[in-house]
Simulated assay, not measured.
Amino acid sequence: MRMDDLYPPIEPYDSGFLDVGDGHRVHWEQSGNPGGKPVVVLHGGPGSGIAGSTRRHFDPRAYRIVLFDQRGAGRSTPHIGDDGVDLSTNTTWHLVADMEALRTHLGIERWQLFGGSWGATLALAYAETHPERVSEIVLRGVFTARRSELDWIYRGGAARVFPEQWEDFLAPIPPELRHDPLAAYHALVFDPDRATRERAAIAWSVWEGAIVSLIPQQNFVDNYSAPAFAVTFARLALHYFTHDAWLDDGQLIRDAGKLPGIPGVIVQGRYDAVCPPNTAYELHRAWQSSTLRLINTAGHAVTDPGVLAQLRAATDSFR
């Protein structure tokens, strides 16, 4: 990772909570230039929460940078880790509505969308619903929640590349339930026993940490195995993925025609084992005003060689 591919660290100049209904309060922040070009950063997961480092993808003199914690994640309340949380009002379309509410609350007419992995899913769902509110889109490691994509990572596809890590992933699941790891893990991470659900959440999370970078790195495994991160990450991801993210299969690529004239850049690692590049390629073909930048030195991790430089080039080109 080249640190000069990131702008210097900055702190928010404004933050708060927005009541979006259903008992939810969404935490948000702004940094950079208050009079600059608005951009909203959509974090991954679902459930990862705000990462302050993502402010550094943007020239702080040129951009008004908005970050927010999606429902159930980060500092937003109620938190997915709390017992008895009602998840019926935490869906993709609730998040899309939250983004519109936040845009209105902040007095923004149009904004750039920036998201990777699950953040790319949410960016596409929002843009295809509110194209008139989008100036540009920058995506990384594209995920659209199709069943084929979920099958790849959670039903044995990536296991062909990472067999030993897959064995560890399956270990918490009783043998008779291993035909559907998504359903089995959903039951485990919502088990009444705290120790059971924490062990399962860590195993679920570590699987992604083990395969996220082009060259496996222990620091990713360590970060993904931290209980505070793993429980939120696993619970929200499984809540979304066992419901196909409330999307028709293939919907986001099918409806890319709703993005005419919206310029976009797709930054994709060619050896991404979490979100293989065929999805990014199919999206690019369907979204005629997009540019696809396939990186031959990268997997899924934003820190893999070449990714940060391409993201900075994209945001600089739109500033």
Rank of each mutant, 00 (worst) to 15 (best):
L67N: 10
H105V: 02
G44N: 08
G32Q: 04
R55F: 09
K37I: 11
W93A: 03
R71E: 01
H79C: 04
F58K: 09
A127Q: 14
G81V: 08
V138P: 03
A62W: 02
A123S: 15
R133D: 15
R140W: 12
L102P: 05
G74F: 00
F114W: 15
G36K: 06
G107M: 01
P131K: 11
G32N: 05
G74V: 02
V40A: 09
Q112Y: 09
Q30W: 00
S135V: 12
I65M: 07
G116L: 03
D83I: 08
G115A: 14
N90A: 08
I80P: 00
E29V: 05
V26N: 12
I80C: 01
A73Q: 01
I50E: 04
L139A: 13
S117E: 12
V66P: 00
L67V: 06
T89Q: 13
G44W: 01
A51D: 14
H105G: 06
Q70G: 01
T92N: 06
L95H: 10
H79F: 02
P34T: 11
L124K: 15
G35I: 02
P78H: 08
G81F: 00
L87W: 04
H27K: 03
D59N: 11
S88C: 03
W111P: 00
S135A: 15
T144G: 11
S117A: 12
T92M: 11
F143T: 12
L87I: 02
K37A: 10
Q112D: 15
P38F: 07
R146E: 14
N33S: 10
G45E: 11
S48L: 09
V96P: 08
G49Q: 04
V66Y: 03
G81R: 10
I65C: 06
G72R: 06
W111K: 07
S76F: 00
Q70M: 11
P78D: 09
Q112R: 13
